[in-house]
């Protein structure tokens, strides 16, 4: 009797130990993350661009995957609306807020209010001191890589048309500053002044007419070597303008990796020189994982970088395909 008791206790203890170690192992993996019973507020300035939409979807899908409830708010590119949505969101007291892009100058006082209300704040692609974690691409790398690719393609000299309409957007600031920094080593590469302004909406049309005008102003071949933009929607208009003007010596450079632009870079005849392709859907998901970790009491770093890939004329066929497949899977062209 006592013997069997002992045996039972032993077996139980062993079983318990085994269960504990199993739990310890799985606790270390991301699979165990849970947002059950949690409400996560998500605020995006807009979703009219491929990157924005994919990140916004990534966030929502991941929150649902982890069993949480999403309050998803798309401000339709209107600052007023985003501020109103954030204000109401604060009153709703969600367990965490994930904020995606927008004008930092406008947002910062409101992000501060989120923290003042005791709500953990996470951001996607938005570097602000108020966020616990910002999940993004390594924009310092991206900015330098795309600039170096451009300089290399230009043979280290020539004039560049630069779109600089969104310097107030943090990621654009980093990429632009990196471009400038790279160019300090290549004094023969010059930015044409005044710089061009990219706009939202009508980004493509506006970029098309801006670049067409500049090419008309500098009609001799070789007077313009490249067009740079901190994202890739102006690059679409710029590429079309260069091709329409028959100025194939001009190459265009941008960042994000919209499927349309990746296809252009893959096309050997297109003037799209290179694009730094990010993984917005993964970025969105990762920000949710960070929020879930934080809510589970784990430590979270101030920023998380999700890898990006520089797609240029040489590697486009191989490197571009996975991105196009991912876009197709998500049902976005």
């Amino acid at each position: 009797m006592t013997r069997s008791m002992k045996g039972l206790v032993k077996a139980l203890a062993l079983g318990l130990a085994a269960a504990c170690s199993l739990a310890a192992i799985s606790g270390a993996t991301a699979e165990e993350l849970s947002l059950k019973g949690k409400r996560i507020g998500v605020s995006a300035i807009g979703t009219d661009h491929y990157w924005d939409l994919m990140a916004f979807r990534g966030i929502q899908d991941r929150v649902k995957e982890l069993g949480g409830e999403v309050i998803a708010l798309d401000a339709g590119r209107k600052d007023q609306q985003q501020i109103a949505q954030l204000q109401t969101l604060i009153a709703q007291k969600p367990d965490a807020i994930i904020e995606q892009l927008g004008n930092l100058e406008v947002l910062n006082p409101w992000l501060q209010k989120i923290r003042d209300a005791g709500i953990p704040l996470f951001t996607v692609d938005t570097a602000t001191p108020h966020a616990i974690n910002n999940t993004t691409s390594n924009n310092y790398n991206i900015g330098a890589e795309i600039a170096l690719q451009m300089v290399a393609d230009m043979g280290g000299k020539g004039n560049v048309l630069v779109f600089n309409g969104f310097y107030s957007v943090p990621v654009c600031k980093i990429r632009y500053d990196q471009l400038k920094y790279v160019l300090t080593s290549f004094p023969d590469v010059k930015i044409v002044e005044p710089e061009l302004r990219d706009v939202i909406p009508n980004t493509v049309q506006s970029a098309y007419s801006n670049v067409t005008d500049m090419l008309t102003k500098s009609p001799e071949k070789g007077s313009i070597g490249a067009v740079w933009a901190c994202w890739d929607v102006p690059q679409i208009g710029a590429t079309q303008a260069v091709e329409a003007a028959g100025r194939n010596e001009v190459k265009t450079y941008g960042i994000d990796g919209s499927p349309e632009v990746i296809k252009m870079v893959m096309d050997p005849k297109s003037s799209a020189g290179a694009v730094a392709a990010q993984q917005p859907y993964e970025i969105g998901k990762t920000s949710v994982d960070n929020a879930a970790k934080y809510l589970a009491g784990q430590k979270v770093p101030p920023f998380t970088f999700v890898p990006s890939v520089l797609i240029n004329k040489e590697n486009a066929a191989e490197k571009g395909k996975p991105f196009l497949d991912a876009a197709e899977k998500a049902g976005v062209k």
Partner: peptide, 16 residues
């Protein structure tokens, strides 16, 4: 009022 709320003047007021 708008500048106070947004801490800035921003493009896109026409949307209203």
């Amino acid at each position: 009022l708008t500048v106070s709320r947004l801490s800035a003047s921003t493009p896109g007021s026409g949307e209203l």
